[in-house]
Amino acid sequence: MAAGARGGRVGMALLGGLIALLFFLPLWWALAGALRSEQETFRTLSPVSLWTLIPGQPTLGNFASLVHGGFGRAMLNSAVVTAATLVVGLAICSTAAFGLAVLRFPGRTTVFAVMVVSFLIPFDAIAIPLSALFRDFELQNTHLGLVLPGVGNGFAVFLLRGFFLGVPKELAEAAHVDGLGWWGIFWRIYLPLSKPAMVGAGLILFVFQWQAYLWPLLIAPSPAMKVAPVAIAQLSGERGADFGAIFAGAVLTALVPLLVLLFFQRYFTQSLSGSGTKG
């Protein structure tokens, strides 16, 4: 019995390892492709062998040519836009969550309803009419135009609201007695207690903005304003594009969220399970 269970466990470990490797293979192959010449990448495909996955003559040349070719600018745009989204978005979403969770005021249910209904509309669905509005306001090819849609995020607001609701009301009341205003209560009591939720909300905002493709494609077509996901897609669409450079760009664009994920994985899974079970 025990031996059978152990045998089953080994079988499951092998199966799990195999599946995990299969999922990882395309990324590994892209990384290998980034570290060798285009010729080597394709030469090692016929026939497929271990050398398909291992750069025989590793080089960083692809990264050098990529950065010379304007991709550095796209990475910089992505970084600036994402950082601005994080700062402004966290400010807007956390204050809104505090307002919905803690403040009592007339019309509160109406405000709550407006927020829920508007965030039920998926952003991508209305991105095209929104881009027409943004063009009317001369926001095309501006950082502001890229940042704005990312700052009000329903998932972030409701994640933070759920967390704020769990903070004991007595803390706020005691602070009131001590003469602390609402901003003081928000800043000195709720925010310091809510670091995991703030990280979770930050991750939501970060992923939304770093991954954005449709919106930047619509609103920032100028070469100077391109973000990395759009730049890499258009690089691959060009005839005679260098596959080494494409892989290098793919690796650079993917590296940033992978590092963030690695660092914050615990928070990420936490916020994921929270949003999944609390609906």
Partner: peptide, 15 residues
């Protein structure tokens, strides 16, 4: 298995 979720869709598409 989760890694592909984290990287931008356009990067996945290009690969």
């Amino acid at each position: 298995v989760f890694l592909p979720v984290a990287i931008p869709q356009s990067v996945s598409a290009v690969i």
